[in-house]
């Protein structure tokens, strides 16, 4: 099998005395869509944030594209990265937040091109053309000059996806991308994600949309209390879970 894009080995994370991630190990391979399920507070968001180094792990190892997140080799040892060095690592990881977090003072297109323009310092004309193409891809080319406040939640989230894609990441992280949306707007965001998965993007998706996990996911990881309880084929995990905790969770969610 090919090398994994994201690889976690014994990842630990505590907030104060509370251990939020306990010994998480998993691999996500190129082109794979991995869905992370689990009850509230189980550490799903925290795990995603560690992958993007928004949180620092306290133990274990985390690799993205063969690079150790947060460290670099210095002789025979590992040197902790400085802020600007982690910024570079982050650019290869796209992140989509539950609350969208678009920049409210910039138009849809400006949001999308902010990374390429400011972080990658690429020429404006080129970046604009790419940004428009991305907005086209999420079905919002006609809204390019709208401010986030003038867009619906679903439209904002699609702009946020385009913004993350603009840096041409090798993996996309989604943290409950549809949880803040009115039910009738969920579909338009899932559509975009389905297309993205079909285009071969590597994705890690925290979601409560069981339909999405089952239909689009290549693998499902179930987390509870900071531990990885069960991983496997979506149909197997969702329809015939082995672990008692998975069964309990699913019976509540699917009830």
């Amino acid at each position: 099998m090919n090398d994994p894009i994201v690889s976690a080995r014994g990842v630990r994370k505590s907030f104060g005395h509370v251990e939020v991630l306990k010994d998480i190990s998993l691999d996500v391979h190129a082109g794979e869509v991995a869905c992370l399920l689990g009850p509230s507070g189980s550490g799903k968001s925290t795990f995603l944030r560690c992958i993007n180094h928004l949180e620092k792990i306290d133990g274990g190892q985390l690799w993205v594209h063969g690079e150790r997140i947060g460290y670099r080799r210095a002789g025979g040892r590992l040197r902790e990265l400085k802020e600007h060095e982690t910024s570079r690592q982050r650019a290869s990881v796209g992140m989509v937040f539950q609350q969208f977090n678009l920049f409210p003072h910039r138009t849809a297109l400006e949001n999308v091109i902010e990374g390429p323009l400011i972080v990658q310092r690429r020429p404006k004309a080129e970046v604009r053309a790419e940004g428009m193409a991305l907005l086209e891809r999420v079905g919002l080319a006609d809204k390019h000059s709208h401010y986030p406040g003038q867009l619906s939640g679903g439209q904002q989230q699609r702009v946020a996806i385009a913004r993350a894609l603009a840096l041409k990441p090798s993996v996309m992280l989604f943290d409950e991308p549809t949880s803040a949306l009115d039910p009738e707007l969920v579909g338009e965001v899932l559509d975009v994600m389905v297309q993205l998965a079909a285009s071969g993007m590597t994705m890690i998706v925290v979601t409560h949309e069981m339909g999405f996990a089952k239909e689009v996911g290549d693998v499902v990881h179930f987390m509870a209390d900071g531990s990885l309880v069960e991983s496997g084929d979506p149909r197997q995990v969702l329809e015939d879970p082995r672990e008692a905790r998975t069964q309990a969770f699913l019976s509540k969610v699917l009830a």
């Binding site: 600007h84 570079r88 992140m95 920049f103 993350a164």
Partner: peptide, 21 residues
């Protein structure tokens, strides 16, 4: 909100860029 700085970090902006932009 913290979400704004996190979104900026997530697209690789440095601390100074996040502050300024």
């Amino acid at each position: 909100s913290k979400g704004q700085t996190e979104a900026a970090k997530a697209i690789g902006m440095s601390r100074a860029q996040t502050m300024r932009r």
